[in-house]
Design a protein around this nucleic acid. Structure first.
Lengths: 161, 161
DNA sequence: TAAATATATATTGCGCACAATATAATTGTA
DNA sequence: TACAATTATATTGTGCGCAATATATATTTA
């Protein structure tokens, strides 16, 4: 009685494509965030960058992180991250400087305003989980499934060799 | 023993965000499709459009569909779809014409070449499901979860009023 | 039938994503 | 110490996504 039995006769049917459900659900979730993030003046990818920086701020030691760490964490490349960071910088949330000792790496730090924004952002996960309407167990199941999926895809990369 | 217990002390932790997992998994899946689609000369969104058109070709009656139906099906707007269709047209896969009887609507039809491409595309779901490495049950569970999520988000839209 | 409204698509502009390439600083090596 | 290779980031170009606006055809209404 699997869901896919409905019209599994056609492997190319749009509704049989998990990829489409993922793509579509992801855009729907981003859209659900949009009005809340707009109040903070952030886009969704910018919000993700801020999440990383807020974490990097909470850790002990010199607060901040490098562009490369950001790319790795969000699995985005510099073509995406560099201009995004420039926009965050001109919004006054982030400062970019080179690492003393290695002039190649860009060291990112939050401005006081960037740090303050965290408090306003705290309300967002609450609003969103209400909007998603999923229970904790469902959320955990979804999380588990998605991270497994991605782990397998990343692990499968070497196959290209 | 929920997954989120790990560091649920911080609701803003990146790894606690289902939204990020979704976003990241979706991009990873798209990336997994990319080499296969490249052989057909298609991007991922173009592939989704072709899936709809191939379906619309299989139905009885006049084959094809309108731009509006495409937008509705893929939940994309004309700003995305119109230029994409022009690219498919200049690639020789699609012809765009106006509907006789209502000159506002654009009627889309596959060219013979567009129809033929379907056969080559048939191999893609097979390759991909191998690459994803998920069993049928897992796939169905994921599908169920994602479509529920999206259904709730779409249903929740009126709340904005 | 003329004007107002609604519908379907197109256009513009901005911000991602990502491939490909470029640049600049660092490290390894002869 | 030069020179090659590596590493970190930046730049360029193409194709989405989406908000806002424009245009053109249909439909409704006065």
């Amino acid at each position: 009685m699997a869901v896919s039995d409905m019209s599994s006769c056609n492997p190319l049917a749009l509704d049989n494509q998990v990829c489409f459900l993922l793509y579509s659900a992801s855009r729907a979730v981003t859209a659900a965030y949009r009005p809340y993030l707009a109040e903070l003046g952030l886009t969704y990818p910018q919000y993700l960058v801020m999440l990383v920086l807020w974490e990097a701020c909470a850790t002990e030691g010199e607060p901040g992180c490098t562009t490369g760490q950001l790319c790795q964490r969000l699995r985005l490349d510099t073509g995406t991250i560099t201009p995004l960071l420039k926009r965050l910088e001109s919004a006054g949330l982030v400062v970019r400087g080179r690492l003393p000792g290695d002039e190649r790496v860009v060291w990112l730090r939050l401005t006081p305003e960037g740090v303050r924004l965290r408090e306003r952002a705290c309300a967002i996960p609450v609003s969103l989980s209400a909007k998603l309407g999923l229970g904790l167990e469902e959320l955990d199941a979804l999380r588990a499934m998605l991270s497994m999926l991605e782990r397998r895809l990343l692990a499968g990369v070497p196959e290209q060799a």
